[in-house]
């Protein structure tokens, strides 16, 4: 009986500790979100989402070009990084014991540890100095470089999670190796890979450093991917370090929009997980 009591008490204490730890972990998240909402909500308006920035001194105006720019940069990055990342992830999983795969895996891990500003510098040297101008392409490329290792590694992990018995089922039915990979392995791993991609996208959407000297900035719409392009993170940075109160207000609003964009991407990732097929 006494033993039973002790067990209940210990159980309660451990539960309480876990709950406390969880609350502590949530605290920074909630406070950051809360603070940004409080400071940014005032600046949010339809005009903010749809208009260009006004010249200095005039009130109002928005950041439509930066929102468009961020979406455009992320799209370019995704187009570059997703096919390359998914394919190399499949390679890493399927030929996991080969020397080249080991080397590639090591490189991917090193690459995901490289500070993003270095990647920006690299693209600056590679593209911007060659073309002699900043562009969305250069910005997208540097974001793509940042996405690549994480897309490749998550794809690898999820393809490895597909049970061997499914590969055998497909091969046993006389499927060729590529059909097995495409229709069975990739299809089974797809929900997991999708989540990995969403998270990678969400992460690079908020990158500022590599954009400073690749996509640069623009106070107007950029007509093509060959021009300097505004983006939310760079706009936030520029506005936040300016001496004008109006700009500070807009920087907070832009931060809120950025968080909403990232949140939206995260939520859609969760949605995919919710529907995910059991392995």
């Amino acid at each position: 009986m006494a033993q039973h009591r002790t067990r209940l008490v210990v159980d309660f204490c451990v539960r309480a500790l876990c709950l406390l730890a969880t609350l502590l972990a949530l605290l920074p998240l909630v406070s950051v979100l809360g603070y940004v909402v409080v400071r940014g909500a005032g600046g949010l308006s339809w005009a903010f989402l749809t208009e260009l920035p006004k010249p200095l001194g005039e009130a109002g105006g928005g950041m439509a070009n930066a929102i468009q720019g961020t979406l455009r940069l992320v799209l370019i990055a995704a187009l570059l990084a997703i096919p390359a990342g998914v394919l190399s992830g499949v390679y890493l999983a399927e030929f996991k014991h080969t020397r080249f795969a080991k080397l590639a895996r090591f490189c991917a891990d090193v690459m995901s540890g490289i500070p993003s500003i270095t990647v920006g510098l690299f693209v600056y040297g590679l593209v911007v100095t060659a073309t002699r101008h900043f562009s969305a392409l250069a910005g997208g490329l540097s974001l793509g470089f940042l996405m690549l290792p994480s897309v490749a590694r998550t794809t690898e992990e999820f393809v490895k999670l597909v049970p061997e018995s499914l590969r055998e089922a497909a091969l046993g039915l006389g499927a060729s190796a590529w059909r097995t990979t495409l229709w069975v392995l990739l299809r089974t791993a797809a929900p997991g890979i999708a989540v990995g991609i969403m998270l990678a996208v969400a992460r690079v959407a908020g990158e500022t450093a590599p954009l400073l000297f690749t996509a640069f900035n623009n106070r107007f719409w950029s007509e093509s991917v060959n021009e300097p392009t505004a983006s939310l993170p760079v706009a936030i940075y520029t506005y936040a370090v300016s001496p004008y109160d109006e700009w500070h207000r807009q920087a907070w609003a832009a931060a809120l929009v950025l968080i909403l964009v990232v949140l939206l991407l995260n939520l859609s990732a969760r949605l995919v997980v919710g529907r995910k097929v059991r392995l």
């Binding site: 049970p163 018995s165 499914l166 055998e168 089922a169 497909a170 046993g172 039915l173 006389g174 069975v184 299809r187 089974t188 797809a190 097929v277 059991r278 392995l279």
Partner: peptide, 15 residues
């Protein structure tokens, strides 16, 4: 294709 196989553990495709 000519020699089909049913495995020890059932393995239908989950997708």
């Amino acid at each position: 294709r000519r020699v089909g196989m049913v495995f020890q553990k059932p393995n239908p495709f989950p997708t």
